[in-house]
Design a protein around this nucleic acid. Structure first.
Lengths: 186, 186
DNA sequence: AATTTTGGCTAACACCGTTAGCATTAATAA
DNA sequence: TTATTAATGCTAACGGTGTTAGCCAAAATT
């Protein structure tokens, strides 16, 4: 039963996104009435949480495979990165659940210029730094994304309380060192 | 009126989080009935969207200040990173709105071991790479976070359609190059 | 055979976003 | 000045949500 609920919930999430998942839809799909779901889960959040746990477990299995496949730590690290990337885009529902991504109002795209303010600003600065070196337009674009990513990623991780570093000054230090390394590598 | 609605909405978001913002609460706060809100905004999403735009504009003003303050591109770039970081943690509601962060079921913390699977796996590999060099425990922890951040950040940006790179292979290339640069810098 | 436990349901509560339709007031036209 | 139009704001409803109280019948136990 519990398993059935989770399976059906995942199915619905895959079909219509987690935003439109409802207890009643799950009840319909398993052909039971609504309250039976509350015999197996405390509330809707608990269902989503359990789904996200399944996501983490699924990812973990792939990472374990990498571990068995690659003894060399560098090769293994590259494989882990690849695995993580593929997991995210093959299972976007899971990834969104795991890291709390996606809410009504976002998905701005490139429509409004405001959204690109940060990218444009750091882009300008980066171009200023690399203007003597012969760096291609494309390469520069990549660099911009890389820096934006590391900063945004760290903020997300810290905000979602996924970081194991408690001290906020420590997290800041991670960013500072990342920016340092980035500039050194330009 | 429109301004008032947005101001009140922002206030409510700051107080109780955007998750519990409702049209009726806004209507109560501005001391009007519900339908008048729909004379000024198409729907709730439009209100959240407009708030997120305010966030982007607020951030932009700070970035413009950096631009005027620092002519040297490297100093300016560091200032931009600092500004972005500070903006996120001084205005978490805005940041969550802008990048669609936070949904029911997340904020896992360190409670369950599953959540740290990826961190632990890349941690192991990184330790394998740096074990000859005399890298401190703390420094290693920072490195782990840095790599995790850049990958997760890029995935988030691509998933949220914030990236201006359309080709998914190109985005993958950004990650690969970032991982390369990271390993080279270990 | 009587009693208790279980499994499952209906119906409701209190919210939510959204909209149709109706007042009342203010502005315009005659 | 009066008649008509436009603007303003409301009540009440529709269909949906998460959640729970209370009940009924079948199954298990005593």
């Amino acid at each position: 039963m519990r398993t059935n609920i989770l399976a059906v919930a995942l199915q619905l999430v895959k079909e219509e996104g987690w935003q439109s998942l409802s207890i009643r839809k799950i009840a319909d799909a398993i052909e039971y009435s609504v309250p039976v779901i509350y015999d197996h889960f405390e509330n809707k959040e608990a269902i989503l949480f359990e789904l996200s746990m399944d996501g983490f477990r699924l990812l973990d299995r792939s990472l374990e495979k990498d571990k068995r496949k690659y003894a060399d730590p560098e090769k293994r690290l590259r494989a882990h990165a690849e695995t993580y990337w593929n997991f995210a885009f093959k299972n976007p529902e899971y990834y969104q659940l795991m890291y709390g991504l996606g809410m009504p109002c976002s998905s701005p795209g490139k429509a409004k210029p405001e959204f690109n303010s940060f990218r444009d600003h750091i882009g300008e600065a980066i171009e200023g730094i690399v203007k003597d070196k012969k760096t291609s337009k494309e390469e520069t674009c990549f660099k911009i994304h890389a820096l934006w990513s590391v900063i945004h990623g760290l903020i997300s991780i810290v905000m979602m309380r996924c970081s194991d570093i408690d001290d906020s000054q420590m997290n800041k230090k991670v960013m500072d060192e990342s920016v340092d390394a980035f500039i050194k590598n330009l």
